[in-house]
Structures are given as C-alpha cells and as structure tokens.
Design a protein around this nucleic acid. Structure first.
Lengths: 221, 221
DNA sequence: TCCTGTGAATGTGTTCACAGCA
DNA sequence: TGCTGTGAACACATTCACAGGA
C-alpha cells in the first residue's frame, strides 16, 4: 500500500510531522550510498529515534514496509515526500536580505530539493537588484503583488523585530498560510496561519539552564 | 518565597524550561512600560500560553506570586534569571563566521543581557582579525586552548555540515557541555552534552505539510 | 524467521477545578 | 474578593509486547 496522508490509524501528532524530514534526509544518504532496503532499526541508528516510534510515525500514513524485510529506500523517500507535499515544487518567499536572510538564501540553493525560494524582499534600496542564491532582491513594496501573482503560500521572515508583524500581515494578506519567523516577537495572526518561530536568543537562554544545572550538581557533590 | 531551582513540586519538564525565556522577554517589556505587578492572565495574553500553564511552570521553582495580587514584575524576572543561571554572565563561543555566524554575532550584541559571546572562530584566514559585534575572529586552531582557558561551557556551531562533528568534538573536549547546532547533521556526542539543533531546511519541509493539508482540504471541499 | 504494524500499558504534559491565602 | 498554587482528570506521546504476513 502506498504511503499517503490519512491512510493509517489515528491522526499524526505534530511531533511526528517534524520527524519526517529527518527520515527524508537519512533516506537520501542511504539512496546515495546504494542501499535499496532499510529497516526501522537502521533508521533508528541513524536518527536517534526509537525504531518503534519510527514505525508508528510511518504507520500514521499507511502501511508501506514489507514484513520480514523492511522499507524500500526510494519508495519510502517518495512516500514521505508525498505526505509532506514535497512531491511537487513548493514555492517560498524570503523577507529580509540581511546576514540571516543571505545565509538562508545561500543555504537553500540546491541544498534541499522541492522547496524553492522564488522571491526575496528587502526595504534597503542598496540591496535591490542584488542576487542571493540566484534570486534577485526586490523592494518590499512589491511584496503583495508578487506573492499574490506567484501564488506563494510559504514565507520566511528574517527582518528586525519592529518590522516583523507588518511583514507577516502583508504576507498573510497576499495568501501566505505558513510562516517561518526568525524575528524575536510573537506574531498575532489568524488561527489558520501555521507559524514556526525560531528565536536564537531564547534558545541560548534555555540552554543556559543546563549549564546552571551542571554547576549546581557539581556544588552539591 | 524566592523562585529557585527545585523548590517546587516535581521535576520541571524541558518544555517548561523553554518557555521561561519567553516569560523573561515579556517581563522586560512590562518593566520598561512601568508595570510593577503582573498576573498569570496578563502573561497568558502576551505569550499565547494558558494562564494555568504559566502558573504551573513557575510553581516548579517555588511559590513566587502573591495570592489575590499577582507577581512582582521585577521579582519574577530576577527569579527566572536565577533559575536559568542568567543572574551572572554566561560566556558562549561561536564557531563559523559566515553569514549565519555574522548574523548571530551581530544579533547577540546588547540584544539580550547575560549571554556574552566571548570568542568567535573560523577556518578562513581572510576572516581572522575581523571584528563581529565587538569580538575578534580567531583561528579555529586556537579553539581548544581559548575555550579551556576561558572556561566556556556553551557553544554555537554555524559551520558547514561536513565540519560540524569535528568542531563539536573539539568544543566538548575543551569543556563545552551545551551546544546550539545550526549544521544539518545529527551530532554524536556524550550523553551529558545538551544539544539543541536548529535546522532550517527541516523546518521548511515540515511547514510544507501544512500547505499540503490546506490544498487537500480545499480539494475535498 | 524476520521485521512490520498495532493494541495495550506506560509515561509525560496540559487543563480543570478549587482550596488557600493576601 | 481575586489570583496563586496544586491535586485530580484528561489528553497526548512513547514504549512495550506481540500478532501477522512476506
């Protein structure tokens, strides 16, 4: 049976969705190395997740493996791509061409297939017309028209905190429904918009807790 | 009673630790705005978490509020800082001075107190001696000695995937126990090392799922 | 036989509902 | 009275244990 959305039992938890791209990356490595079959135990070794969890994650989308054998490497990869909607090209736009935006644009190119940066916007006139990873930087004033014309539904925000809410509203107004937000602010947006925040200083501050724990454990013996 | 590590009931879940810096940011805004008391309902409104969850998170570390009143804004902030170990300066090092590393270095400066970038390393001779956010870029060959001498225990990895494992091992060998890793690889490190991975393409791919869901929902009516 | 797929058991985290105290 | 602090109920996620089919 093919691996597809909703074919399995129960609803897939969000945490399972976030593990699928990890499997995809490992499968790409295995395909490149010439393995054409992979077991959940192999995937467990390479991802750090338990084999039961991996089997359960995959089973949310249907039966895909062969009992006694394992999963077809290529078949599982294309199945996961289909589940994630990565079996066709996904267009994304980036707002903010500072250092972070530049890193994202460069990184994206050719790095992972099927998510394509189709436009980059910035407010700084000095940056307009520059190419980042093969995509020209446009004025943010063009954002609504371009996003709407290209039908883009995925956006990445890499602008200063003060500008983020406005940019987010413009994106959503133009049809974007999923956002990756690097600005250190909580965005207020309609509930149907899926937002993933990545906040560098919050992560660092949370990590500090574990340092403190170490120090305390050492003090206490 | 003062808010401190382990003063409350049960062990704080990791997800609660990750929420503490969010509270800290909101509290800083409230302090700047002159509020000297804040209720869990206020924090809920500004963070998007439920008020019960906020009270529970704080209670893991002891009783801190005043019944019928709320929490002292300044007192709660300093209590959370103490829990996270941010009541004293925390030193961190950054490895990789590319666009991402530059963004991180610039962002860090003055942005959030108490986590200080004390050294930046890169392998590219052209970058050595440059200043990023007030810190000089050194050769990665100096990494072990500098990290050990300064007693740094927090590291940020912003190097290409191929270099990340080696860099991570060097950092851990020199005494680092907590890592923020931006390289798209699973690091194999001793269990006592706390690793937080931030992987841009995995996040984008996971978001694509929600686009696909939208498309499918539309197709199905 | 071997490894997948899955109900049942367990564990973890969140929400509810209210007791407790300024 | 009002808001914190917390046991109890609930929801969610992971692990266990094994049935099922190549």
């Amino acid at each position: 049976m093919a691996l597809r959305r909703g074919a399995g039992v129960g609803r897939p938890p969000d945490v399972a969705i976030k593990r699928l791209p990890v499997y995809l990356r490992v499968l790409a490595e295995l395909e490149a190395a010439g393995s054409d079959v992979v077991s959940s135990a192999d995937l467990a070794r390479r991802t750090g997740f338990s084999s039961e969890q991996i089997r359960k994650d995959l089973a949310y989308f249907g039966s895909f493996g062969t009992r006694g054998v394992g999963y077809s490497t290529a078949g599982l990869a294309s199945g996961i791509r289909r589940v994630l909607g990565l079996d066709r090209e996904v267009a994304a736009v980036l707002v903010g061409a500072g250092h972070l935006g530049t890193a994202l644009a460069r990184y994206n190119v050719g790095r992972e297939q099927h998510v394509n940066l189709v436009a980059i916007f910035d407010i700084d006139p000095a940056k307009l017309g520059q190419e980042l990873g093969g995509t020209r930087v446009r004025s943010v004033t063009e954002l609504p028209a371009v996003v709407r014309r290209l039908g883009v539904r995925l956006g990445v925000i890499a602008v200063p905190a003060a500008a983020a809410q406005t940019v987010a509203e413009d994106l959503v107004g133009a049809g974007v429904v999923a956002l990756l937000n690097f600005a250190p602010v909580k965005l207020s947006l309609p509930a149907h918009v899926q937002v993933q925040n990545i906040d560098l200083s919050l992560e660092l501050q949370a990590l500090a807790y574990y340092l403190a724990g170490e120090a305390e454990a050492a003090r206490e013996g």
